[in-house]
Write a protein that binds this DNA or RNA. Sequence first.
DNA 1: GAAATTCTCACCCGTTCGGGGGATGCGAAA
DNA 2: TTTCGCATCCCCCGAACGGGTGAGAATTTC
Lengths: 224, 224
Amino acid sequence: MSSESDFTPPMMRVPEPGTKIRVLVVDDHPPMRIGLVALIKSQPGMDVVAEASDGEEGIEVYEDVRPDVVLMDLRMPGMGGVEAILAIRKKDPEARVIVLSTYDMDEDIHRAIQSGAKSYLLKDMSIEEIASTIRSVYLGDSLLPRQVAERLTERSEREQLTERERDVLESLIKGRSNKEIASSLCLSEDTVKSHLKTLFAKLRVRDRTGAAVEAIRHGIVHLK
Amino acid sequence: MSSESDFTPPMMRVPEPGTKIRVLVVDDHPPMRIGLVALIKSQPGMDVVAEASDGEEGIEVYEDVRPDVVLMDLRMPGMGGVEAILAIRKKDPEARVIVLSTYDMDEDIHRAIQSGAKSYLLKDMSIEEIASTIRSVYLGDSLLPRQVAERLTERSEREQLTERERDVLESLIKGRSNKEIASSLCLSEDTVKSHLKTLFAKLRVRDRTGAAVEAIRHGIVHLK
DNA sequence: GAAATTCTCACCCGTTCGGGGGATGCGAAA
DNA sequence: TTTCGCATCCCCCGAACGGGTGAGAATTTC
């Protein structure tokens, strides 16, 4: 962290008049990538400087082109969007990444923002909303669409799960019984039941089935 | 079924040299729609004649423009792709619809093919694969990518659920107990247990939690 | 008309599950 | 230091669950 200990003042990248916003597009769906590139190029004041089809490639390309804004899909094969954002922001803490996802699950949104994304857009949003968010984020803002922000609020009303509770939850969704969860996590069955009790309370369900459904619905665990 | 009882020979629409394949694009994601339109227009021998952003609009527009091929998303707000395909093929049994979906769940694929789709593509497929499928379907073929076909095979190995079993399954995923499922479906609890028994066997799980997870994983029931 | 399937319900029985307590140790925060 | 959250474990108990088996009625299929 030597870059944090020196005394160079934070260099804000301000928009230079007449210069286009340089965007990197990262998405694993070819037609979506084509669409995003076309969308951005059709907007005045911005241009696509590179594309990538997964997280790893996105990180590499970021280094090469140092774009002003990254438009990043979240769920991609191999390295997902969250890891990619973390890696990019580790190299460049000033990086401005906008997540563009199909899903509006609260956990996805939270993880994205937590990892440093400046905004979270949904793929069913209008080109105007996407373009204007790119501009805002480029200018240093960090705004969430109302629909997305509301989801985040819902989540914050749900109590946070502990690491162990997550372990039990994941094991539960694999179809295991309490006894099997216990042995798979090297715990006593009573401990598993204890975790389940708090888990049910936090997810506001009565039983393991409800817990499984809620966990999947909110993206707390991903299937496959 | 009066159209089936007359003796007019089936009129095959054969490709006319020099004429472009007229494609209708139906997708609720603006950037994806832009991408698909750009993709198709970039291909020699095909052109986009109309776009729609949901099922209803797709049906209307189909009537107006009578395209050669429809590229249709499956999961859309309001009327989904399946209903739209059924409606389109009811009006024009010769309609050639290709589903282009994000998801490769076997139930989605099955429902799409069942409702009359000529092919089922995934959004992570290459533009070449998408373009060549449009050409093939236009020529009257009905081919599935290997990856998709394999999923269908998996499904056929799973025993088909009966109507009542689906009812119980849906109720189960709403977090209901056996007793509650019984009263919600106006059944005795023993009958519910009886359905659950066969359900577990068909889905190859031991308990309700496993049934819920498998049902969601394979798209047998959709959340929300 | 026979066969198959589905839907319905019943009974028994053992296991699992979930709710109610409470207890310990441990590290971090106040 | 004390308090707090967390993880771990224990006990009791009743309700819910899942397996086995069977069986009558209705519908469809052959």
